[in-house]
Design a protein around this nucleic acid. Structure first.
Lengths: 142, 142
DNA sequence: TTTCTTGCAAAACATTTGCAATGGT
DNA sequence: ACCATTGCAAATGTTTTGCAAGAAA
């Protein structure tokens, strides 16, 4: 099943209505393998679906996060969204500063548990690595 | 040497002028052991130094980050600033959601280097743990 | 006196919200 | 027909910027 169809299915299961705007949004997340800013999503959507308003994009992004279809990732310059990793395991991301792709890594520093005082009750954590992926860092040396 | 004096000294060394506003800002960072939002800093400063403008706070926070006197920490609800840890070693932070204090931990997941592909060229990383510190998590159970 | 800093006001963003009209079910 | 969703416009919140007046060096 395509990612777009999967998103729409989850939306349907959650009682959200399938509108043209939402179909387009799902299509964008299908074709894109990079985390996108709301503005970029808005830009792409406007190419496809004329007369769209930005607040609709924001509203739908919030809904999609709520139902767990996409996830926000905080970049140095703001928040971006991508299809939620289907990795079952908890994991983190390598984020390429050049091509902007994200790659999951299985390692979680919390699970390693090194040096964290037992008395500290962990609620949430963030761990992200920004840099250049294998392909982009090769390109730079050519 | 007090932390306030240290901040002012660094500012002086960097050619920044020592104004009343900046003295007050340094004093706040001295008395506070928690990361503060710009708004909170503005609030505190206004108690001490009447007729201050918010943009001055922002401008000075930027300068202080530039010269390395303070550091920004991203909280779930926005950015906060605190005196730069004097820990010589690279480290990360435990952040208490209740009392908002931060505690450095020596562990760095990057240095452990587990599971990160060699070809990925790391530029920057973030690792933060939010939760309840020993004192606050005890308070909750009483 | 020279240059940096401030306060003020306004601009620049990003995100959210109220409301009437539209569209999915 | 009902109610969620949309577009529009306006509000909100945060951070930045231009500029003339004021203060540090």
């Amino acid at each position: 099943m395509s990612r777009a169809r999967h998103i729409l299915e989850v939306m349907d299961q959650c009682g959200l209505r399938i509108t043209d705007q939402r179909k387009t949004l799902a299509a964008i997340f299908e074709e894109t393998h990079q985390p996108l800013t709301p503005k970029k999503i808005y830009g792409r959507m406007n190419e496809i679906y004329k007369g769209l308003s930005l607040d609709t994009v924001y509203r739908n992004l919030r809904k999609l996060v709520d139902i767990g279809a996409i996830e926000p990732i905080t970049f140095p310059d703001g928040v971006r969204y991508q299809v939620k990793c289907t990795h079952v395991n908890h994991h983190h991301h390598l984020i390429c500063l050049s091509c902007e792709q994200t790659m999951p890594i299985e390692m979680c520093p919390i699970e390693l548990g090194i040096g964290i005082p037992e008395k500290f009750q962990i609620v949430q954590h963030t761990f992200q690595i920004h840099g250049y992926c294998a392909i982009c860092s090769e390109d730079k040396h050519e």
